[in-house]
Amino acid sequence: MKTTVRSERRRQSGARGFTLIELLVAIAIMAVIAVLSWRGLDQIIRGRQTITNAMEDERVFAQLFDQLRIDARHAATDDESGQAAVSISGSVLQIVREMMLPGTAPRLQVVRYRISDGRVIRYASPPLGNLDEVRAALRGGEGSDWSAVPLMGGVGAINARVYVPKVGWTTQMKDVQSAITENDNNLKVPQVGNAPLPRSVTGLQVSIGASSLARPVVRVFLVGE
């Protein structure tokens, strides 16, 4: 009987729970695992947000540059617009472009890209039927009958320069005007009415600087091609 009691006591003394130190160690390990898991999840979320923002920026840039490409491709000639069809003034880019509407004769349209409150806005005049209307649109500002389409936000600067044959890339409109004058002087009489004047501007380079960009994005467009 004594032997049985002693054996039972030995079994009870050998069965014990976790000590306080063991519990603290286990809690510490679980805390480390939780922190590492949270950091990993946070990095995944941040990476996903970065990719989403980059894709959105790419979409906005593509929309802006695609519209610029269309406007430059449909640019009118200098004699059609009565002055340089493509012109730059500070951070404003202006293009006189041809406009084809179903069932109507070809029209011209004045398009301006300018920054307003950090956003690139494309202003477009209504269709213009004659040179007087074109001149009035070129001299005036954007009236109530003009459309205004926001294309991109967060823009710090929009810079442009034009390519003038025999001159190269320039930001000086006097170079463009000199090319127009030279083309006009070189025009031969038999060509009058048969062919337009050569273009004074054949290329357009646009640089966009935005807060989300480490460096400006530059694109080059052909004019009238």
Rank of each mutant, 00 (worst) to 15 (best):
Thr4Lys: 07
Val5Gln: 13
Glu8Arg: 09
Glu8Gln: 05
Gln12Ser: 12
Ser13Thr: 14
Gly14Lys: 04
Ala15Arg: 10
Ala15Ser: 03
Gly17Ser: 13
Thr19Phe: 06
Leu24Lys: 10
Val25Gly: 05
Val25Asn: 01
Ala26Met: 15
Ala28Trp: 04
Met30Ser: 14
Met30Pro: 04
Ala31His: 13
Ile33Leu: 15
Ile33Trp: 04
Ala34Val: 00
Ala34Trp: 02
Trp38Asp: 02
Leu41Met: 08
Gln43Asp: 06
Gln49Ile: 13
Gln49Pro: 08
Thr50Tyr: 10
Thr52Gln: 14
Thr52Phe: 08
Met55Arg: 09
Glu56Pro: 00
Asp57His: 10
Leu64Glu: 01
Asp66Gly: 06
Ala72Met: 07
Arg73Cys: 03
Ala75Arg: 06
Ala76Glu: 09
Ala76Leu: 06
Gln83Ala: 14
Ala84Cys: 07
Ala84Leu: 02
Ala85Ser: 15
Ser87Gln: 14
Ile88Gly: 08
Ser89Val: 11
Ser89Trp: 09
Gly90Asp: 11
Gly90Leu: 14
Leu93Gln: 08
Val96Phe: 12
Arg97Pro: 04
Arg97Glu: 11
Arg97Cys: 01
Met100Lys: 07
Met100Arg: 14
Leu101Pro: 10
Leu101Ala: 08
Thr104Asp: 11
Pro106Lys: 12
Pro106Asn: 12
Arg107Tyr: 14
Arg107Asp: 03
Arg107Phe: 08
Arg112Pro: 01
Arg112Phe: 02
Ile115Trp: 07
Arg119Pro: 05
Ile121Arg: 00
Ala124Cys: 01
Gly129Asp: 08
Asp132Ser: 06
Val134Gly: 03
Val134Lys: 02
Ala137Pro: 11
Arg139Asn: 07
Gly140Leu: 10
Gly140Met: 09
Gly140Glu: 11
Gly141Glu: 10
Glu142Asp: 11
Asp145Met: 06
Ala148Gly: 06
Ala148Ile: 03
Pro150Cys: 07
Met152Val: 09
Gly154Ile: 01
Ala157Trp: 01
Ala157Asn: 07
Ile158Thr: 03
Ile158Phe: 05
Ala160His: 09
Ala160Leu: 07
Pro165Met: 05
Pro165Ser: 06
Lys166Thr: 13
Lys166His: 09
Trp169Val: 00
Thr170Glu: 06
Met173Glu: 06
Ala179Val: 11
Glu182Cys: 00
Asp184Met: 13
Leu187Gly: 02
Lys188Ala: 15
Val189Gly: 09
Gly193Met: 10
Gly193Cys: 02
Gly193Asn: 04
Gln205Ser: 14
Leu213Ile: 01
Leu213Thr: 02
Arg215Asp: 12
Pro216Gly: 10
Val217Ile: 14
Val218Gln: 12
Arg219Leu: 13
Phe221Met: 11
Leu222Asn: 15
Val223Thr: 08
Gly224Ile: 11
Glu225Gly: 15
